[in-house]
Nucleic acid binder design. Structure first.
Lengths: 247, 247
DNA sequence: CGAGCACTTGATCGCTTTCAATAGCTGTGG
DNA sequence: CCACAGCTATTGAAAGCGATCAAGTGCTCG
């Protein structure tokens, strides 16, 4: 934790997620209105940010770090239903209770708004509502793509799909394109990967070992991954490699 | 097909989905603007309404019947990612190409708008954008609930979950509450159920037989279902029966 | 040095799939 | 009227994949 912000009025102009977050389309006036009501909060890795069923008093944007949305059944089976990355929006205007647990996977910083003032501002700021609709539609597409992974893919394909998503996202955040080898650190434990993929952590571990043995990925330590051939990985994921409609 | 509408200016005031569709919050002026540009289309059971990858020239609301959203892998594995019921919105303002196949499961009627005029109207009609945001957030919740079903539930629990969802929806469309036995017709073939649940049709058939044998459901013919005890079914689905947060 | 945690690997079990045969229903045509 | 094709659904037997149970490794931190 070497990057904590606690001031209430850091400049939105300098914000690293400025161009992708819910405020992306706002003009100067609208940003100033947001700046009036925003505040930053930090959470440590492992902390639960919101409990399922709790009243949601705030909404906000992920500034840095990674969080997960999870559902848990009475007997303990859990399914991750979303991965929250920088610029993603947390919370739901118009609903009072949280439907899922939100857990910090790494240390995170959020840009928060108390729910009511944000709802009021949204009602008179179409730019925010429009951007939120776009982001929600994107999340819906992502959730549906994940349904195919959960419902129809094999364990090996599931792992390859997850690695491919993480690699692509990483490429879009950093400068790198998708040609040549891709290198990144896994932001998730084996157990978290299992919860995302609907597998056990043992199966995750075995399939990662298998992909490594087959040369699809290279591992340094447990978390540092190199993908020598992205096309190969996408074949392993069962994805269309030449189709052009990927997001 | 004894109920086909082809006139372009049927009254929105008489529309059966008026209070739940994307136009739900519109006032009289806004409805008139919608009436200007709307038109009805019918499709027969089995027809593909939109092909994945195709240009989407229109959006619209389901008026009657049932359609499904499906994704297919190159080798033929398919996963249903959504079930479209009366009042549900089809299509995505702001995106040009369809990400999924949309297939009519029964004969259906849709209230359509050409995409561009609808987008223009939406840009100057906050009531429509707000309602669409609400509906999209609801769909996102439904998709995430389904991720738990796909990722973590057993075949038996999956069938029970599907029956419980269909039963609940049916109760909300007809007058009936959820006390006492519930009766409805399955709108899906065994294969469609399998595609929704990430199972094979044989497993679907076996588990339905098992639930029938155990008295959880009663079957007349292949499609007509009676649920004597909804609480029992929800236990079988692995859902919280006493928790109060269900939609 | 030992406790705790994340991860790996092995052996076995069992659920779901796969392959295959059959039943029931509908519509068609001789 | 019956034979037959085509479709949906059921049921059985066998195989396979991932889960479960169980050790053991390597690392960090006190």
């Amino acid at each position: 934790m070497n990057f904590q912000i606690h001031t209430d009025h850091s400049k939105c102009g300098d914000c690293p997620i400025r161009h992708r977050a819910v405020c992306a389309h706002c003009d100067q006036d609208e940003l100033e209105a947001l700046e009036e009501i925003k505040y930053y909060r930090s959470f440590e890795a492992g902390q639960t940010i919101i409990w399922s069923g709790d009243q949601m008093s705030f909404v906000g944007s992920m500034v840095s770090g990674i969080a997960s949305l999870t559902q848990t059944m009475e007997d303990g089976r859990t399914q991750m239903v979303g991965l929250l990355l920088p610029s993603d929006f947390v919370g739901r205007p118009g609903r009072d209770f949280a439907p899922y647990d939100v857990v910090a996977t790494t240390d995170i910083v959020m840009c928060c708004f108390r729910k009511k003032p944000f709802e009021d501002l949204m009602a008179r700021t179409p730019h925010i509502a429009q951007r939120l609709l776009q982001m929600t539609l994107d999340e819906l597409d992502a959730a549906r793509e994940w349904m195919l992974v959960l419902g129809r893919k094999t364990a090996r394909e599931k792992i390859a799909s997850l690695l491919s998503i993480i690699a692509r996202r990483d490429a879009s955040l950093t400068k790198g394109g998708m040609s040549g080898p891709m290198v990144f650190d896994l932001p998730l434990t084996r157990e978290a990967m299992a919860d995302y993929l609907g597998l056990t952590l043992e199966t995750v571990s075995r399939q990662i070992s298998a992909l490594k043995r087959d040369g699809v990925i290279l591992l340094e330590g447990k978390r540092h991954v190199t993908i020598p051939d992205m096309g190969r990985l996408m074949e392993e994921a069962g994805d269309d490699t030449d189709g052009g409609f990927l997001v």
